[in-house]
Nucleic acid binder design. Structure first.
Lengths: 244, 244
DNA sequence: GCTCTTTATAGTCGCATTGACTATTAAGGG
DNA sequence: CCCTTAATAGTCAATGCGACTATAAAGAGC
């Protein structure tokens, strides 16, 4: 990898780029937002935490590559309820010191958090608390911040919150998703009212109730409904800087 | 990593891609939504209309390339009030029959519509009514539809509508932006009330009024304010399929 | 047993937003 | 001088939602 000039490769009249995917995989563990990170085994940024990701292969779309990389690099294959969504593309010329890399970033939400095992390029892989592990390699701090903001906005507008929950969940657990991602407390009766008043957001599991860890009145169980958008939206209480 | 690459180009351990930008440039002309299109001069899709765009150069980010291509290919350089925003990236392996091309798509909104003049690759360039010119080349029909939906959603959530308007505009013109993009009629007094009740959306131009083409009571003029988000949002009356 | 704590669930009250209206004002056209 | 057209002002009821209070059902501790 010494030279910087292409030689004998004039099939294309354009400059070739490396195209990669980066994944901001979020979940809620022990009541806090966690992100899936891998420890880089080689330079640059050896020893730093980074978002999982890798090169897109010739026959793949970026979406396909994202699923493959997630499986390869962390062993999270065929996770039920994985919600994968394109975030945006990062293409600043100097974002990778080695070469020109354009990266398509994705957000992924997981209901539960099986412990990942490090794959090919990664020294380690694991769930880290969202606030902890900075700075990340490359521009991954920014990507992760963008992903967090995007998920926060999506919670306002869509039924995405169920993607953080297992197949059956209580309304308290659903509320905890909002509180964890937004970092604010919500009024429980009002949250209930809003969720139940939105057709297709959740549907009750007949006759089922769960003891929520022990204490307190057992909560009714719900499943994710068929609706995808929240109309009207469920706006977060603190209306400051949101996406454009 | 797969190595199907031809002749002596092993500088990279990955497959090189062409990276392009595609622009969905929208404006309102004669009261209807128009899109900036170029007629392709060469195969594939010679003679078809396509979104303007082109290859990202080695020293550019996709955003920079988008602005350059817009200027080069259509002569729309330094347009005042151009709002450029990344939409998403299209990376299906077969989206360009010639080769592997990953394209970062942008939406751009223009207040007025200077007539473009065709540039390098384009046989012609011009504003075409949004509904008319299908099918477009490549997967540009889908990109354009995604852009339209995205702009519609942004109108609900942000102050983006002013990007379609000249520096000074009437509330009737602003309302027309919403009606044109959404394809629905809005109640005029209610629209006024909502816009004026949102701090920073518009600010009045003191003592100015415009005869709106002649007939009717002269309308007060407004300028775009400093706010970027609409809180609470301005939801479109027909709540069906929206973005995820 | 009993109370205390915890959590879920039910319901109330008032304000703010919004949809559907009606009314008035100010221009141009015949 | 009345028409039409468009902007602006205002009314009224339904709904949504924030801030509450109240009740129900579980375990913990004694």
């Amino acid at each position: 990898m010494g030279h910087t000039q292409p030689h004998g490769y004039d099939k294309y009249a354009y400059e070739p780029f490396a195209v990669t995917v980066d994944l901001a995989v979020l979940t809620i563990r022990s009541g806090a937002l966690h992100v899936l990170l891998v420890e880089r085994g080689q330079d640059p940024y050896a020893g730093h935490w980074a978002l999982p990701g890798g090169f897109v292969e010739p026959s793949e779309s970026a979406e396909t590559a994202a699923r493959r990389e997630l499986a390869e690099e962390t062993g999270l294959a065929d996770v039920t309820g994985l919600h994968l969504e394109q975030l945006r593309t990062y293409s600043e010329p100097d974002r990778d010191p080695r070469m020109r890399v354009v990266s398509v970033a994705f957000t992924a939400l997981l209901p539960d958090a099986p412990e990942p095992h490090a794959g090919s390029d990664a020294a380690r892989a694991g769930w880290l608390a969202y606030d902890k592990p900075r700075p990340l390699a490359f521009d991954h701090d920014r990507i992760l911040a963008d992903a967090h903001e995007h998920v926060g906005t999506q919670l306002e507008l869509t039924c995405l919150a169920t993607a953080f929950c297992p197949a059956e969940f209580t309304l308290g657990e659903l509320q905890h998703v909002y509180e964890t991602v937004w970092g604010t407390a919500l009024d429980r009766p009002n949250f209930r009212r809003k969720v139940l008043a939105t057709p297709g957001f959740v549907e009750p599991v007949p006759g089922a109730a769960r003891l929520t860890g022990g204490r307190g009145k057992p909560a009714a169980l719900y499943r994710a409904g068929t609706a995808t958008t929240l109309q009207p939206p469920l706006l977060r209480p603190n209306p400051e800087g949101r996406s454009a």
